[in-house]
Amino acid sequence: MGKVLVVTSGKGGVGKTTTTAALGAALAQTGETVVVVDFDVGLRNLDLVMGAERRVVFDLINVIQGVAKLSQALIRDKRLETLWLLPASQTRDKDALTEEGVGRVITELREKFDWVICDSPAGIERGAILAMRYADAAIIVTNPEVSSVRDSDRIIGMLDSKTKLAENGGRIDKHLLITRYDSARAHRGEMLSIDDVLEILSTPLLGIIPESEDVLRASNVGAPVTLGNRLSGPGRAYMEAARRLQGESVSMTIPMQKRGLFDKLFGRRAA
């Protein structure tokens, strides 16, 4: 039985879709089977970031409505045979996503794949709740900036109340991923520090992804950054985060070189 992860944040534009693609490709490179699922109905983008936008035939809603079988909607990555995509629909009818339908699809995916990674839409409405509904674990994507941290706090509360696991008295595993981290700005005190964010959200840290133009380049060409450029700053950071997800203990390194931060972080326990 595979593990279901939701990549969530509340706020938009923080790096959820980038993270879903990067972690999906990183995990798939270790030989485990991975499916990334786009829950952003009406605004699908994971297909673009994965470079599969021209190959979409059916989508999640087609599967839920019985128009297509799951096997017909899944798109296999052309570069990594263990990596698959289930695209979102471009339909404007968000109600087409039903709780029961999502449950059926997730159950089937869980049987077929080692990892099911759900890319949540922004917000705290229905779509975001459905994306987290059946998750075993959550990756909360946060930028070191006040509104993002506040929204993450909201989302953490929802993970503890609105998920199936929480309703059944369980505890969802939570991992904090700080993205778009600009060490120069943090050093100048223009951004919240990693310590501030961790203290406020008191959630174990999965990784720190640097702000980098490598991410933009990766999305331009449709290759997850861990596939096209895994030696780049964000590539390495995502590869390490994936190893932590797999239970390995990898020491946390700060993406850039500013003195002090590394020392502060050294020895911090990973999520």
Partner: peptide
């Protein structure tokens, strides 16, 4: 449905 494969490019 298991014997039908559809792809687009």
């Amino acid at each position: 449905p298991d014997r039908v494969r559809i792809s687009m490019d």
